[in-house]
Amino acid sequence: MSHSSSPFGDGFEPFDPSQSIEEIEKVVLDLEPKIRDLNRHMIDVLGACPENETGNWAYLARTELGEFVIGFEQVSIKSGMKLSNRFLDVYRILDDIDVAAPSSSQYQPDLGPSIVGDAASLRFVPSTHVRVVRK
């Protein structure tokens, strides 16, 4: 899904680098490297964005007030759900790291779950079932 007819999305003014030398410097030397870094990290964690050929998630945009901002691709509901699952995976990995690196040397991470039993197998917050009203 394309985010809008403008490459910078609805509500954003197309960026015109010809406006001033200072702005070109700012964009080339400062902002574009940041966006590239951001896209690299996001692709590492989330995979390529399925909504465009480059796989990038973030792009440089500008508000109507002329302020530079970072825009993010719009995604379909289906891709959004995949993204949600990916975030859950990331959360679980991070949570495991936390559990694996306790600050106290005396902490026995398996002791509590072994006593609590079945209920301790619910280790991560499940998604909440929400009210669905279809028309």
Binding site: P102, Q106, V116
Partner: peptide, 19 residues
Amino acid sequence: FKRQDLPYLGNPDREHNGP
């Protein structure tokens, strides 16, 4: 459903001396 609703809440960040 929040983290507080999980039945078992381990707390590895706390000092653990003598369960």
